[in-house]
Design a protein around this nucleic acid. Structure first.
Length: 1058
RNA sequence: GGGCUAGUAGCUCAACUAGGUAGAGCGCCACUCUGAUAAGGUGGAGGCUUGCGGUUCAAAUCCGCACUGGCCCA
């Protein structure tokens, strides 16, 4: 791109993006940027792999934008950043999608179809989804290593999981055992708790009487899962809860029931008893050890009947609700299971993985459990044990993929016994720095403390095969008789079959592999890993470890990871767990935890509600840069984002302002042959505004850097936008316009070019991580061949102390607020800025402000279009002014206590002739009808505007604008009115900036006409009028216009090109 | 049901960590400007700071409860 070439007049985001994509391709921008930092210090970023089902939504887009921005930031700071993207491609969600595609209903369908073919389908599906995600991410400018993503389905990656699992096994953290797990009977596999979705459903309820064995009466239990009653092994009570023995009467018959006191009335009502009498009251502790008869003893003859089963025990999970007596089946519920383990009870689960009762369930064998609810209820009723039955609507867990109600079953699973290393987990957690920190210290810690052992086995197909081989026929029940394979090489070496180390290690390829050692043959456990285990090894999997060792040695652990807050229980946790189990360390040093993308009302975006905004819609509407700026303008530390079209539009508007700012000087620079490499701010004599802008730029760099380092890139963006819009566009550009328009070349003009050029170049660099497209294009125009091929190769702009001038910044601040006050005063007086005023008087509050005004008189006179600026002494007053006072509540409050409010009001309302405390006290006394003691600290006096002068206050004093006119001022005022209108005509004629014209000015006012004539020189220069003469109205290059009221005067103007 | 987190102008957010008359940007209205012009300037309207209680002379801020959203857990 040619330096200072003419950029398009309009900022068109889509066109910019198209051009930049082409440009990036053309110059290999990404590759060169990476190569540029090859020798830099390493920065190991790890991408949390998105799951490959579905497209990128606003949340993923936010996440990837953040990652991209921080990667760019670190690159600009000289780091060699690891930027390998990852994809999470195994697991049940994909299996169920593929099953849907193939119209399968069950595992039998898969087996019939063939496991190998099914795996192939899954692989294909995941790859298709991956392609979609890749192009989504690229569409908004994310620069990661798209050629070489890590995929959890690559054998190299899968090996990383095997390796880690093997390490955990070596540490004694892998065991097989029964656990109560959530089972999806359709998918026929255990699913993770976080894969359980809760929804409201209607379920049967039963109140059942468990007849006591050695005493009269029955325990009353309540459950919504009658199908678990066959597996009942004990009844739990709370030791400290009060229970009652009641004699309940129905139809003239009386029976004895045991219930928690709090539940008696309601339960008996449910059971439609006519009356009852409380016979006895006692704590649950009295009931411990009571024995009862299993209510379905005859129907389920094979249930365990050993000592200890069928008794009452205490359990912490009991509360005085329902009946206060809890039916407990260790073969099902997880708390029941845990308590059962403690009590040394057997685990009895007469239900298969498909939810069908096994032979152990006696008469119910062969029936699907949920279907058996009714038969069981009827059996209980027939036996006189059903106290009541009904239905209830409550939230119940469902499989998140296929929406089947889950079952709690105790089954054989493989576990990583995380609970054995809980202290280590907590210690390791402390080694990671989190933004925000509360997420680590509250949420994450709580989760770790309550985390159960990790069930890593799944009875499915599309996953990393569990690398455990157990002695034939032992089903893994003999812990010492098993082999855990850590690498493919190891498998090749030990396998009975002839294998190739490059083989795919998915099912079914490894299923038939056997290992025979010392006369024992081992066969593989058929399970695959829980998909959460896949991504848990990403910090080394992304480095191809253990296959490749070099990067791992150099880089691990990750310097930074960033994901949304759902990953606290997901990836942040699984990595900590696996890192600790396998390496004894947390695999990341720093976590940036961001929030979720909600809709404009703060609600979750969901397809069913129809409030989803697709990233591509946002890109089409406002451009990828504006979308990224919106996303990156959000607080990334734990806060959810509210999507806002409005805000995104603001971003686009700001980019438009920047575009205009950047475009403005280019034609002048080009025309004057400005050379930014030779003519620099260090060598030129800078004007005060140049010094100021450069100083302000240093402050900006200081602030933005601090924000980025604190992971508050949104604040950095805010500061940057403010600089561009307020300081650069609204102030600096306005100030230098005259300098730039001057025709003669000169150092003054060149200094403005050099300043603007430097500032723009740095602003563009600071903005590059947010808006990679538009900054690229601007950078190209600014630097041409002399810069890097891409803005993204730039160094992060460093703070240059030599430009810092805090006193100047402060003074200009004052000048700007005086200017603002002056404009205000002018507006009130009806005197537009185009008309000069004789004088502006500044009455400063302090010597400091007085000095500042004195130093920058010229600037102020120029900005306020005043012939002269007068400065009063701080204690001097301007004409007849009154004073008001403003209360300082922090002093007033403590002094007056409860009266502070009314004293404040009286104080604020008072008007006094002088800034004198006694006068003020008098005024307040009059208002409140009592004496008050004021001190100077309590109030600040303020001058009140006199009626006859246009005045306005500013932070450090008051500005008075003297609006009285004389001939000289009027002459210039009218002359400028002529100039402005003549310019408009020039524009109508579409004349070049350089074009000269003939100007015809007719003023229909005898007093004003000669005044205007006096200023023909001024007019001629401004309008590039070569002569004042009549114009030919018929000429195509002529524009004539008549104006009825130019500040009370009629005039006609004609412009003709010569 | 439990934990964490948030609720401030029409919208996006500051002020909350050390209690002292609630601010900005955008939007809206009026006026204005016109050599960056889908810009710029000046002014204005707009808030019982989600609600209810408490602590305090004084609460957006501290405490409790409730309501609403979000995430996680059950």
């Amino acid at each position: 791109m040619d330096r200072f070439a003419e950029p398009p007049e309009q900022y068109d985001p889509e066109a910019v993006r198209d051009r930049v994509f082409d440009y990036w391709d053309e110059v290999d921008a990404y590759e060169r940027t990476k190569a540029h930092r090859e020798d830099g210090e390493d920065f190991f970023f790890v991408d949390g792999p998105p799951y490959t089902s579905g497209a990128a939504h606003m949340g993923t887009t936010w996440n990837k934008s953040l990652k991209d921005a921080y990667i760019r930031y670190y690159r600009m700071n000289g780091y060699d950043v690891t930027d390998r993207p990852g994809y999470d491609m195994h697991g049940l969600p994909i299996e169920t999608k593929v099953e849907e595609r193939l119209d399968f209903d069950s595992k039998q369908d898969i087996e019939a179809f063939g496991v190998e073919a099914f795996i192939e389908e899954c692989k294909q599906f995941a790859n298709e989804q991956l392609e979609g995600l890749q192009s989504d991410f690229q569409s908004f400018g994310v620069w990661m290593d798209w050629e070489n993503p890590y995929k959890t389905v690559d054998p190299t990656y899968m090996e990383a999981a095997w390796w880690a699992f093997n390490r955990a096994a070596d540490r004694g953290l892998v065991e097989q055992g029964k656990r109560s797990i959530s089972q999806c009977p359709r998918c026929e596999t255990a699913i993770a708790n976080n894969e359980v979705e809760y929804e409201d459903v209607e379920d049967p309820t039963v109140h059942v009487k468990f007849p006591l064995a050695e005493r009269e009466g029955s325990l009353v239990i309540y459950t919504t899962t009658p199908w678990t009653i066959p597996a009942n092994e004990f009844v739990a009570v709370g030791e400290d809860i009060t229970y009652q023995r009641v004699a309940a009467t129905k139809d003239g018959e009386t029976e004895t029931l045991y219930l928690a006191e709090a539940c008696v009335e309601e339960v008996l009502k449910e059971g439609r008893y006519d009356d009852y009498e409380v016979v006895d009251s006692f704590p649950g502790a009295h009931m411990l050890g009571w024995e009862y008869d299993h209510p379905l003893a005859e129907e389920v003859p094979d249930r365990p009947d050993e000592r200890g089963v069928g008794e009452v025990y205490h359990a912490d999970y009991v509360e005085a609700e329902d009946t206060g007596l809890v039916h407990s089946a260790p073969g099902h519920g997880d708390v029941d299971f845990e308590r059962g383990e403690e009590l040394g009870l057997p685990v009895f689960c007469p239900v298969g993985g498909d939810g069908v009762y096994t032979d152990e369930a006696g008469t119910y064998a062969g029936e699907f459990v949920k279907d058996a609810d009714e038969a069981i209820t009827q059996d209980l009723a027939r036996k006189g044990l059903l106290l009541a039955s009904g239905t209830v609507t409550h939230s119940y867990g469902h499989c998140w993929r296929c929406d089947t109600p889950i079952l709690q079953l105790a089954t054989d699973q493989w576990f990583i016994t995380i609970t054995d290393v809980k202290d280590e987990l907590l210690e390791n957690m402390e080694d990671s720095e989190w933004h925000p920190q509360w997420a680590r210290d509250n949420r994450f810690r709580d989760f770790i403390e309550s985390a159960p052992d990790w069930n890593v086995s799944r009875q499915r197909y599309w996953g990393i095969p569990v690398p455990i081989w157990v002695a034939e026929g032992t089903k893994g029940e003999r812990p010492d008789d098993r082999i855990v394979i850590g690498t493919r090489d190891e498998l090749v070496e030990r396998a009975d079959q002839d294998l190739d180390a490059g083989m795919d290690i998915h099912k079914p390829a490894v299923d038939d592999v056997t290992i025979t050692e010392e006369g024992v043959t081992y066969e593989r456990v058929p399970d695959v890993f829980d998909v959460w285990l896949d991504s848990s090894v990403a910090s080394w999997g992304t480095l191809d470890y253990p296959e490749e060792e070099g990067d791992f040695e150099e880089l691990w652990p990750a310097d930074l990871i960033m994901e949304a807050h759902d990953q606290t229980r997901g990836w942040f946790w699984s990595q900590l767990g696996m890192g600790t189990a396998a390496m004894g360390d947390v695999p990341y040093d720093e976590v940036l935890m961001h929030g979720f993308a909600n809709d404009e009302d703060g609600r979750k975006m969901s397809k069913s509600v129809g409030n989803v905004v697709q990233p591509h819609e946002a890109i089409e509407k406002h451009g990828a840069d504006a979308m990224r700026m919106f996303l990156l303008g959000q607080d990334p530390q734990g806060e959810d984002m509210r999507f806002s079209w409005d805000e995104m539009q603001n971003m686009q508007r700001d980019l438009n302002v920047l575009w205009n700012v950047f475009r403005f000087p280019l034609p002048y620079m080009r025309a004057d042959g400005f050379d930014p490499t030779a003519q620099t701010v260090d060598e030129l004599d800078l004007a005060v505004e140049d010094d100021w802008l450069l100083s302000t730029l240093q402050k900006l760099k200081h602030d933005t850097e601090e924000y980025w380092e604190n992971r508050e890139q949104h604040r950095a963006l805010q500061a940057l936008r403010e600089f561009v819009v307020e300081d650069l566009s609204r102030y600096y550009i306005q100030l230098i316009r005259e300098r730039v328009w001057t025709e003669q070349a000169g150092e003054n003009k060149t200094a403005a070019y050099a300043t603007l050029h430097k500032v723009l170049r740095e602003v563009v660099a600071l903005l590059a991580p947010y808006a990679p497209f538009v900054t690229e294009e601007m950078y190209g125009y600014l630097t041409g061949e002399s810069g890097h091929p891409t803005v993204h190769m730039c160094d992060w702009p460093a703070i240059e102390e030599r430009f810092r001038q805090p006193a100047l910044e402060d003074a200009i601040d004052t000048a700007r607020s005086i200017e603002e006050a002056g404009n205000h005063a002018r507006q009130q007086a009806g005197r537009k800025l185009r008309w000069p005023v004789a004088r502006v008087v500044v009455s400063p509050d302090s010597e400091r402000v007085a000095g500042q005004v004195d130093d920058y008189r010229g600037l102020l006179a120029d900005r306020l279009n005043a012939r002269r600026i007068e400065v009063l002494d701080p204690d001097e007053t301007f004409g007849d002014v009154e004073y008001s006072a403003e209360a300082d509540m922090s002093v007033l409050g403590p002094a007056f206590g409860g009266d502070a409010g009314e004293v404040m009001e009286a104080l604020n309302a008072a008007r006094v002739a002088d800034d004198d405390l006694d006068l003020l006290e008098d005024a307040v006394r009059d208002a409140l009808d009592r004496e008050v003691q004021l001190t100077p600290e309590m109030v600040e006096f303020r001058e009140e505007t006199p009626d006859d002068v246009a005045a306005a206050g500013f932070e450090g004093g008051t500005v008075y604008v003297d609006t009285e006119l004389d001939d000289d001022l009027e002459a210039e005022g009218y002359a400028r009115e002529v100039v402005r209108r003549a310019q408009e005509l020039r524009k109508d004629l579409d004349l070049d900036m350089e074009a000269e014209v003939r100007l015809d000015v007719l003023v229909f006012d005898d007093r004003v006409a000669p005044l205007v004539s006096e200023r023909e020189d001024l007019i001629a220069e401004e309008v590039r009028a070569r002569e004042f003469a009549e114009v030919d109205p018929d000429d195509a290059n002529t524009a004539v216009e008549e104006y009825d009221d130019v500040e009370g005067v009629r005039m006609r103007l004609g412009v003709q090109k010569v």
